[in-house]
Design a protein around this nucleic acid. Structure first.
Lengths: 115, 115
DNA sequence: TTGATTGTTAAGCACATGCTTAAGTATTCG
DNA sequence: CGAATACTTAAGCATGTGCTTAACAATCAA
């Protein structure tokens, strides 16, 4: 299989999110499931193009889908969104802790004088 | 200018993060500033390749750099990391609120019976 | 069964990406 | 000065991306 039952690698997750059409699809699916043509409706783009975007999103683990009759229902996978967010969160907090220490160090040696 | 004084558009931020070499550079810079050759050292890749990755990161607003003498010092821009994280956070929470409402609805109509 | 709906597959094209090597430019050190 | 250091620029190449159109299923509804 592509990923561990849809567990995403960050390469494909961030790549999937790097396109505005795909981010809009993700945003839409965060409000609830939708069919392929429902997802396509807002865009000035052929249906196959949307299907290709959905393939990128599904490959990344951000979206899953199930075909019932002739309709494919797509929905978000919140866990994958959380993974990408967590990667960013870890780096950001580590960078900000470092900046806090730096600020502390600067205040210690050159205390900010009021006015 | 490329962006509003480095204020990132999500396209270029997520695209920058979609490469493992660039994510490793970001992770390294979250521990503190570094020169181009320091950043290049861990990778089995030519220096120009690293410089190109740094250009992608700087264009996205994730990294900034300043050249002093012959050394270019690179550092992280925490605000940009925070922007990307915030986009994901908003979508995730909205998706999860929706799932919570759905769960509440299901419990209301088919209450989970103990054992 | 006929026709409309909903998606799928395949081929192709313009352009972007991620590397490479080779040849430059500054800057600092002895 | 001359040599070493630290990038920088340019060109080229294989592969990937984001679309298109055209043709093909599969399903549902009259």
């Amino acid at each position: 299989m592509l990923n561990n039952q849809g567990a995403a690698d960050l390469d494909s997750v961030f790549h999937a999110l790097a396109d505005p059409t795909r981010r809009a699809i993700v945003a839409r699916l965060c409000e609830g499931p939708a069919s392929v043509s429902e997802l396509a409706k807002p865009f000035a783009m052929s249906l196959p193009a949307i299907v290709q975007h959905l393939q990128v999103l599904e490959h990344s683990g951000l979206v899953r889908s199930e075909k019932i009759g002739r309709v494919r229902s797509c929905s978000i996978v919140p866990g994958t969104v959380r993974e990408a967010e967590a990667w960013l969160g870890l780096r950001r907090t580590s960078a900000e802790r470092r900046l806090d220490r730096l600020e502390g160090f600067l205040n210690q040696n050159h205390p900010a004088k009021p006015i």
